[in-house]
Every structure is written in C-alpha cells, then in structure tokens.
Amino acid sequence: MGNSTAYPVLRTDDASTAYTQARRLCALLEQEDEVWLTAELRTAGEVRRMAALLPGVTFEHSETRTDPVTGRYAGFDLDVTTADDAALKAHLPLDIIEEVAPGSVVTRFATSLGRGAAAIEWHGRWPDEPAAGHYGSPPYDGVQVVFHGDRAQQGRWTEEHTVFVHVTKFGDLPRARKLAAHIGGEVLGEPQLGW
C-alpha cells in the first residue's frame, strides 16, 4: 500500500483560517470517505470537552507508561466523566484518535481544541482530470489540517497551523499547486510522507 504524498499548501498562526481553508479544499474532493481526528490533550478541561464531544472515545497516555512494580504497559483506565481534576492531571497529557462520520462533529472538534498538537484528516478522492494528467487515487487523496504543527506525520510542536493536500502515493506536484492556488496558497517546501 504505502503512504500518500503530502504537500503543505498553507501555514498560518490563525487556527480558524487553517480550518476554513482546509474545508474549502475538501469541497473539491469528488468523494469524502472517512474523517480522522487526533489531539493531544494537556488539561483536564480539554479531556472533559473531548469526552463530551466524542462519547466513548479512547484516551491513551501520550508517552508510554509502565507499572513500577511489574514493568508492564500501563494503559489509561480512569473514567473521565467521574474522575476529579487532580486524578486526571496525574495522567496528562493524553492522546485521542477517532474516526468520525464526515460532517458530524468536525467543526465542533476544531473549535474545542486547546494548545496541544491536533489534526483533522479528510480521506477521499480527487476527481479525474485526464486532460491535465491527474487521476484520483483513493486511499491516498485528501486534505489534512495540523494544528500546532508543520509535519503531516507527528512532529515538533509549533505556534503555526498547516494545511496539507494528499495526492497519490507517488506525488503529483502540478495537482498540489493547482489545489494550493484554489485557496490563494502555494506549495511550501518539499513533499512529506503522508498517511
């Protein structure tokens, strides 16, 4: 299978602008198949907001933890709806990754984020454009907005937010440039390893 090729097409310090421009790109997808949400949660309040927004979401420690006695992997097992803030703080930061239906809670997710790194991935298919030599390539096509990051794969935390277009596993720079132009952007640097 392999990974998609991700091109950064917008970088901004305004999360709302990044989300809005990513949604503009999503409107160009011929089909939207799945949406993935990921977030690093740094406060008890953020954990509670995500629990309310995504009932049943699984929380995981951001860094691997082991039981000090047995040395075995220690998963996160608190009930976030009943745990007090002090109990939650002892486990922070926490991560979530969740597949959701297209259009369901995505906008509320974007507006509920804190200062931790997060991402929204819209997997789909770009339309075929035979005259330009562009062909849709599911499961590699799509749009991604990374909040507080500049890498399509997990990377260092930044103040900025980055929008990526994913185009085939082999890359398609002309199509990426065309998509970037649609939102008044341009391809920013080298392609990256995508999803």
Rank of each mutant, 00 (worst) to 15 (best):
G155D: 07
H123L: 10
W122P: 01
W122F: 15
S137P: 03
Q144L: 15
I120W: 07
G114I: 01
D150C: 02
P130M: 05
E160R: 14
R151A: 10
G133C: 14
A117N: 03
E159W: 06
H91T: 07
P139L: 15
R151V: 00
Y135D: 02
G116H: 07
E160G: 10
Q153M: 12
W126V: 04
R108M: 08
L94S: 02
S112F: 07
G133A: 14
L113Y: 04
F109W: 11
W122M: 04
E99N: 03
S112G: 03
R156K: 11
D95G: 04
G103P: 00
Y135E: 11
T107P: 00
L92D: 06
V100S: 01
W157C: 06
I120T: 04
V100R: 10
Y135S: 08
A117P: 06
L94M: 01
V106I: 13
Q154D: 13
T107L: 05
D150F: 00
G136S: 12
P139S: 14
P130A: 12
A101P: 00
W126T: 06
P130D: 09
G114H: 03
S137V: 02
L92H: 04
Y140L: 12
A101M: 07
G124P: 06
R108S: 13
D95L: 14
P138Y: 12
